[in-house]
């Protein structure tokens, strides 16, 4: 039964992809299709990386309302970007080889995120405190970022400004190959870890009792999450509530928290929302609004609903 629901999700995702590729084709077909395929690849990657990173993050922290974005991970990433602009100047920043820069950023984010989050997980910090700490991390790095933004000259500021908003129309295709490899590796690791993730979801004590090497496993999973956050933030910019929305929806659709089902379901749901939504906005609504805003709105609502329903775990 769950497998059937998963198949339905897969079919719906394929329909969205087909619609995205085929609606309103005009002019030079080869050019249009290449353009769309590149964007599609980026959207799918963002979907997959946000879905997987959110599922894993929720499992590791053992609750349903934390996402990497709520814990300020993307703010951390943007701060890193701003720091680069500050150090090298707008021209220097633009001149950096995007792939090397991206690779460095991913490693930096992995290091920083792990060193911030691991102590909290080790000491079994409770949920409220984690959430609070996350919000403060977020504000802290955003403030640092805006402080730096005030210090750079206006031209550099324009460069920095463009990267701090989510934008699904203008994805960074120059990082695509690198990001594809990273996402694919992460997806394979997540799939292979699906059984371990089920056990990790039971909490530290039960997981250790069942033979999971807790600290090592959790560190590895957090590294994976930070790499995925870096991928999605680099491609489209920060989106806070999308992961939450996607995972909450997927969990209800397949009615399970088993990772063998939830991970693919969340990824497919993300593809449906992102690719389907983008198709709708481009062709149905004539770009009258931006998908980013709508997703954040719906995700924010989902966050509040989850809070009210008290599903804190």
């Amino acid at each position: 039964m769950r497998d059937r629901r998963l198949l339905c999700l897969g079919a719906a995702a394929l329909v969205c992809i087909a619609a995205y590729m085929s609606i309103g084709l005009r002019g030079n077909l080869g050019f249009v299709l290449t353009l769309r395929a590149t964007k599609l690849a980026a959207l799918i990657q963002v979907s997959v990386s946000i879905a997987i990173s959110t599922v894993i993050f929720q499992t590791v922290t053992n609750n349903r309302i934390l996402t990497p974005a709520i814990m300020g991970l993307d703010a951390l990433y943007l701060f890193g970007q701003m720091l680069l602009v500050f150090l090298f100047g707008g021209v220097g920043y633009a001149a950096l080889d995007p792939q090397i820069k991206f690779g460095g950023e991913v490693l930096l984010l992995m290091g920083l995120a792990t060193s911030l989050l691991l102590p909290m997980l080790r000491h079994r910090t409770d949920m409220g405190l984690m959430l609070l700490a996350g919000v403060i991390f977020g504000v802290f790095f955003r403030s640092l970022q805006s402080l730096l933004a005030r210090l750079v000259d206006p031209n550099d500021f324009a460069v920095a400004q463009s990267m701090s908003f989510a934008n699904f129309n203008n994805v960074r295709t120059d990082l695509l190959i690198f990001a594809t490899i990273l996402t694919a590796i992460a997806a394979v690791i997540a799939w292979r870890a699906r059984h371990v993730l089920d056990i990790v979801a039971l909490g530290a004590d039960s997981a250790i009792g069942l033979g999971v090497t807790w600290t090592r496993t959790v560190t590895g999973l957090l590294l994976l999450v930070s790499a995925l956050v870096a991928v999605s933030t680099a491609l489209v910019g920060p989106i806070a509530f999308f992961g939450l929305l996607v995972v909450a929806a997927a969990e209800r659709i397949v009615d399970s928290r088993r990772h063998a089902i939830l991970v693919p379901a969340a990824a497919l749901t993300a593809v449906i929302i992102l690719v389907g939504g983008q198709t709708l906005f481009q062709h149905g609504l004539g770009n009258s609004s931006t998908l980013g805003v709508v997703i954040e709105f719906a995700g924010g609502l989902a966050f509040l609903i989850l809070l009210f329903l008290g599903s804190r775990r």
Binding site: N62, G203, D205, R257, R313
Partner: peptide, 9 residues
């Protein structure tokens, strides 16, 4: 343990 966490669903 006394206070084993059980995830939902």
């Amino acid at each position: 343990r006394q206070d084993s966490i059980v995830t939902s669903r």
